[in-house]
Design a protein around this nucleic acid. Structure first.
Lengths: 336, 336
DNA sequence: TGACTCGGCCGAAACGTTTAGAATAACGTC
DNA sequence: GACGTTATTCTAAACGTTTCGGCCGAGTCA
């Protein structure tokens, strides 16, 4: 910018004025300066600008698993609206690892991001103080963090899980295994609660041995399912807490020599683009992924826009049960 | 930092010295300063630091489609090694849209990233000058950009596609439709060339009407497949240029009232975690996704480390044909 | 003609670091 | 006791912007 000022024989203040269009500059000077900018190939230094302004026009985004199509779609939606608004996005993916996540949040905060969107991965107690003292607007997605009052957009997990399990119950299943996510995430807790709600509403007793926990990833789910299938009276239906886990479930079913839906029914959280062309076509709870991302980004932009006043807002969106052919009516007579 | 200096009754230079450990400071001063840092809760301002140092310890990453599991895995691997090395990652996903990509690269460069990893999406002519004048180390992944000599890590696409098509030919297929990617990407060109290589090696003439182009996404592939299936003598096998396209292919097959592999065989580029539990189990060309990402990140780190000297390096990794059950021997007698 | 206003432009002080070079103190050596 | 050496600390100048206040000259009005 100094070079430009020199070349155009004006002060840097004037150059800054034309670059930012802040104050009016006479046409001939503006022209001369613009010519100089072209000639020199000047690009303004965003770092210096950020230092002076105290804003980076960058927002940090941390998700639990970038490899998970759910997060992937959410990230994509977030990026769309944030880029539109002139913000860059710094992305971090911890592998459902709370310690890594903590580091990432610090890293992002260090980088002076203007705002943060985070999908908390487990271990809320450590995350809480960091988020609360962040000093920038934050919006939570997918999962909330107990006791920290921040903007959040989430799914109505309890209701959605309840719907799916109710569907299974309507098909006369009574021994419904549940491959659950971890209870240190709100999604894990809420979905389990939905499962229990459905059972209760149908008058079916909750049996602890029918639910197994894992960390929302394939390997854990495989293990969990193997255990579930090994019961003398094995479940006639299985419900998986997310998209990654259902793959583990299906692998376990196969390795156990069973077949879905002939021998066992399966439903899960999260939809797949390929779900209705491959067999069995999974019955799933579809989440409004793009809406989640877009709403989160918009909430953040509002905060960034200065509407500091209002209370934390929680947006709770509804899932949609997509019925395909991975569940069959239960034929065996269940003794509970 | 000024506050800390004041509180500890030293100069900012000394504070800087203990924060960075650059020069030795007497134990008692160090202690006093560290205490002051704790007391004040001082965090050094990365922006100011970057401005002074001319380094941001941030690297830019742009991929064609964050929604595509292939890129997702690559991104995950890249992040792993880059975070390990203390770098943050700024991610942009253009939706296979060359114009958006151009904007993203500028945005990243504006943000003064120390390096760039890019998976070029189409329209190389416009991208080329931008990359060449970037002034920071760049490594290309997945796709290269003709005529710009940068580090790159890619798959041996030609060979991999050839292997897959050869497999189809070995099953006696002669009318093999190809749902190709766009020819303004190196992957599009190379994979098509591999298809042609295989045909030629088998003495099967290349027939233009058997290949249809799309932009590596589902919708295009659906359309393309519909056209292919409408031929009076329809293909007995289909090869799809990537993971997203194969979904479109399968949907078209279903909507056309056909079934795979009974009526038509299908193979594709890119493997899926779920490929061997859902029917038909797709025969695919698996890419070493993590290796691609890790190598790209390492190449970049080397450059960042200052080894300015050497020539651009091209790493070409091998794909692996994973044979499952989506392809059957061709029974119909083909007249070509 | 003089006072006042106002649009355009500039000078210079920030923003929070890093770092070269100067200053100081402590200490050993001759 | 003067002097060189070394270890420690400080002063001050950058890095490239933005922006506040001031200055200048031209137009307006009495």
């Amino acid at each position: 910018m100094l070079d430009v000022a020199e070349a155009a024989r004006v002060s840097v203040a004037t150059v800054s004025a034309v670059v930012n269009g802040t104050v009016s500059v006479s046409p001939q000077l503006r022209e001369r300066i613009e010519a100089a900018i072209q000639a020199i190939g000047y690009k303004r230094n965003t770092i210096a600008r950020s230092l002076k302004l105290g804003k980076t026009r960058t927002i940090g985004l941390t998700v639990a698993d970038i490899t998970n199509p759910f997060f992937t779609d959410v990230v994509s939606a977030i990026q769309g609206v944030l880029h539109e608004a002139g913000y860059a996005v710094m992305l971090c993916s911890n592998d459902e690892d709370a310690a890594a996540q903590l580091e990432h949040v610090s890293l992002l905060l260090d980088r002076m991001v203007d705002g943060l969107i985070v999908a908390p991965a487990g271990d809320e107690v450590k995350l809480k103080p960091v988020l609360q003292s962040a000093g920038v607007p934050i919006v939570l997605i997918d999962r909330v963090c107990d006791g920290v009052d921040l903007d959040a957009v989430i799914l109505d997990n309890r209701r959605a899980a309840c719907d799916a399990v109710t569907y299974l119950l309507d098909l006369a299943h009574r021994r419904i295994g549940y491959v659950s996510g971890p209870l240190d995430t709100s999604t894990g807790r809420e979905r389990l609660q939905g499962y229990r709600d459905a059972l209760e509403a149908a008058g079916v007793p909750y049996r602890q041995e029918l639910v197994r926990f894992g960390n929302f990833r394939e390997a854990d789910a495989y293990q969990a399912t193997m255990e579930l299938l090994a019961f003398p009276e094995r479940p006639t239906a299985l419900f998986a807490a997310n998209n990654l886990m259902v793959i583990g479930v299906m692998k376990a079913i196969r390795d156990f020599g069973l077949s879905c839906p002939d021998d066992i029914s399966v439903a899960c959280f999260d939809d797949f683009p390929w779900a209705d062309v491959f067999q069995p076509q999974l019955t799933t709870v579809a989440q409004p992924v793009r809406a989640i991302g877009e709403n989160a980004a918009k909430l953040l932009l509002e905060r960034l826009g200065g509407s500091e006043a209002h209370f934390p807002r929680h947006l709770s969106l509804q899932g949609r049960l997509v019925i395909r052919n991975s569940c069959r009516p239960c034929l065996v007579h269940n003794v509970l």
